[in-house]
Design a protein around this nucleic acid. Structure first.
Lengths: 180, 180
DNA sequence: GGAAGTGTAAAACGATCACTTTACTTGCGC
DNA sequence: GCGCAAGTAAAGTGATCGTTTTACACTTCC
């Protein structure tokens, strides 16, 4: 495997499992099997490494949602993500809070990711009910954000609760659309 | 103000705003206006200080929800909390993840807090619809958890979206209760 | 066959980490 | 007025932080 790829995926795991600040450069170099000099040649600094990790994670996460055209598929993909990657809350929000919102690269990566997620949910809602519905999309976003964090302490079964709640909201929006 | 109280509230603010690991003992002692010797006499260690901070935060948070007997009041209290204390995601989940789930005192404080929150929501749901409804309570919990984290990047106005979604779910549960 | 590029190991950088210790002051009770 | 509890400032503990540097090995390409 490519050195850079190995470094980034190692860093993502360590940051996710032990936190950004608590993960030292020695654990990163040792984990990736490279020297510190090579690490700095490739990514420049710890903050830059985190920014790269976040962008890569965003790409992988969005790819896992790429084919979803219904809330069933949305929460199905989310459940699969939790099984594959674990559920410890949103990494973007966590490192954003951990760095106090003081690192511009991280603030931007977080903002970009959340905007894309919101956009993706908007598309899924539109595919589901046939028209745009900002209010409904925002509510589904809340359920997605909720299950992302609740799954950390209530387990992956919570995904089913979120799905059923989302179905109810969609059903409500459909009948409301018919009656109005 | 009492030294211990001052220390704990200072620590809560610093941990919340800058993260647990990133907050050094010098910032804590300086912020509370005490010597490091006094800090260690009072709380023993940084981890113990965090555990005390979390318990205190739990008490204050649950007190802010104590009078709520409807989802309107629940999300009203939540919105007020975000205005007063800021919205940077759940501190319990953040420090739990930051410490990799390795510190027993923190795992326990987090678990206790989430169990109490879940219990409180169950009571509110029961007061609202007249009977227990685990599924509905779990869905409201997801909305609460969702708005706690979404408010960090979408602003406090998201509370209204959560409230309207919760009302819909309650309405659905009521009509379902009548029809079945 | 020499230059350039890419990697290594390991030492050093000053700063900061959580925490302890030493030496000294202050206020209160008996 | 003596002792004791509770506070201070400040130095010191060894470890670890992110980052840079030095010295050297291995390809690859002209």
């Amino acid at each position: 495997m490519d050195i850079r790829t190995r470094l980034i995926s190692t860093a993502e795991q360590l940051f996710d499992r032990h936190g950004f600040t608590a993960t030292g450069m020695d654990r990163l170099t040792h984990g990736a099997g490279i020297s510190s000099r090579t690490l700095y040649k490739h990514v420049g600094s710890k903050n830059r490494l985190l920014a790269i990790v976040l962008d890569e994670r965003d790409r992988r996460f969005m790819r896992s949602l790429a084919s979803a055209v219904s809330v069933d598929e949305l929460f199905g993909a989310l459940g699969a993500w939790f099984v594959d990657e674990g559920a410890r809350g949103c990494l973007f929000l966590r490192v954003w809070a951990e760095t106090g919102g003081d690192v511009p690269e991280i603030v931007e990566a977080m903002t970009r990711h959340k905007a894309r997620l919101r956009q993706r949910i908007e598309e899924i809602v539109e595919a589901e009910i046939g028209c745009r519905d900002d209010e409904l999309a925002e509510a589904i976003l809340l359920l997605v954000e909720g299950v992302t964090h609740a799954a950390a302490y209530r387990g992956s079964a919570t995904v089913d609760v979120a799905l059923r709640a989302a179905r109810r909201l969609i059903e409500g929006a459909r009948t409301q659309g018919l009656s109005s």
